[in-house]
Amino acid sequence: MFGIVRSSGRARARHTVLALAAATMLTGCGALGSADPNAAAGSELEKTTLKVSILPTTDLGPFWLAQDEGFFQAEGLSVDSVIAASGQASLTKAISGEADIAFSTYPPFFTATGTGAADMQLVADATSVNAKSNAIVTVPNSPVKTINDLAGRKIAITAKNTASDLLTRSVMQDHNVDFGKVKWVLIPLPNIAAALQQGEADAAYLPEPYITQAAKTAGAIPVIDINTGATQDFPLTGYGATRKWVRENPKTLAAFQRAMQKATHEALIDRAKVEPLLVRFAKIDEDTAKLLTLPGYGSILDARRLQRVPDLLLQLGAIPKPIDVNSMIGPQAGR
């Protein structure tokens, strides 16, 4: 060590050149400064490109923020979105391999596992019901005026055994309204306002931003807020993947989770960061983005809170036997 300190300037220069040459060979970089720090971060990941199936709703605010702010990129990930028509359709994309991770309302994850259709694990939380963020709505010319009028009517939902189905039936049950004779009309969220206007449905379950949009385009009015009774603060949406995918991609999953945790924190403390993303990605206008009620964002999975979902599914006959949520929660970064 002391010999190096006393060496001549020429010797020091020779040592420096050799050291730089060695570093270049090790990193595979052809020139100084050309190394990509994200490449180093992503080199340990099982996959650096992820496909995530999503629905264009306000629940995706933190996801779009993670993309826009470069949180995924900082973890060495390139994330592509695959649009799905419903939570069930999103889940199907993950099961088939078209997507790596699926965003969905929670019921499809539990019904798939409970019925043996797929072995799913939950990998990140997304949202809970907030006051006025989800509602059963109608239009002025509909025969439905109150929740008691829903019995025997045509009610639009996105798909059976999704949150739109489960939460609508739960709210009706809370008010002793018989849902046994309801005609369930399956309609994608973007088409529900028009269906209400045209009489194809007498009422509909809607989340934001569709509540605010339907109010502007079809004069839709709430029949009842979902954030009541048994569904108050109900776990609404999250991200999941097949157990096989989780087992084979632990580092990639952890990178996705870290990015989502950071983005969710940012979304919670600064709504102004979320609103322009809803305009860009959920295709809503600026006024709607400012007026709508955001859901309760979250990223860390809480088994006790989530247990409400399969318990309600079991109560409503959507799954044949109880499910312990702990058995479905995958590894979580930071825990």
Rank of each mutant, 00 (worst) to 15 (best):
V137W: 00
V137K: 02
V137R: 00
V137I: 13
T138K: 07
T138I: 02
T138E: 04
V139I: 13
V139G: 08
V139T: 13
V139F: 06
P140N: 07
P140T: 10
P140V: 05
P140F: 11
P140E: 15
P140C: 10
P140R: 07
P140Y: 10
N141R: 11
N141V: 12
N141E: 15
N141L: 11
N141G: 10
S142Q: 03
S142T: 12
S142F: 04
P143Q: 09
P143V: 09
V144F: 13
K145W: 01
T146D: 15
T146G: 15
T146K: 10
I147Y: 01
I147P: 06
I147L: 14
N148R: 11
N148E: 12
D149K: 08
D149N: 12
D149V: 07
D149S: 10
L150P: 01
L150M: 13
L150Y: 05
A151V: 11
G152K: 10
G152N: 07
G152I: 14
G152C: 08
R153I: 06
R153N: 01
K154I: 11
K154W: 04
K154R: 15
I155F: 07
I155W: 05
A156R: 03
A156G: 07
A156C: 10
A156Q: 08
I157S: 03
I157P: 03
I157A: 02
I157M: 07
I157V: 14
I157Q: 02
I157D: 03
T158M: 14
T158I: 15
A159C: 10
A159N: 15
K160P: 10
K160Q: 14
K160W: 12
K160I: 09
N161I: 02
N161P: 02
N161A: 12
T162N: 01
T162S: 14
A163H: 00
S164Q: 05
S164A: 14
S164I: 00
D165L: 00
D165M: 02
D165V: 04
D165T: 08
D165N: 13
D165G: 00
L166H: 07
L166D: 02
L166K: 01
L166A: 03
L166V: 11
L167G: 00
L167C: 07
L167V: 12
T168S: 15
T168D: 08
T168L: 01
T168G: 01
T168W: 02
R169M: 07
R169C: 00
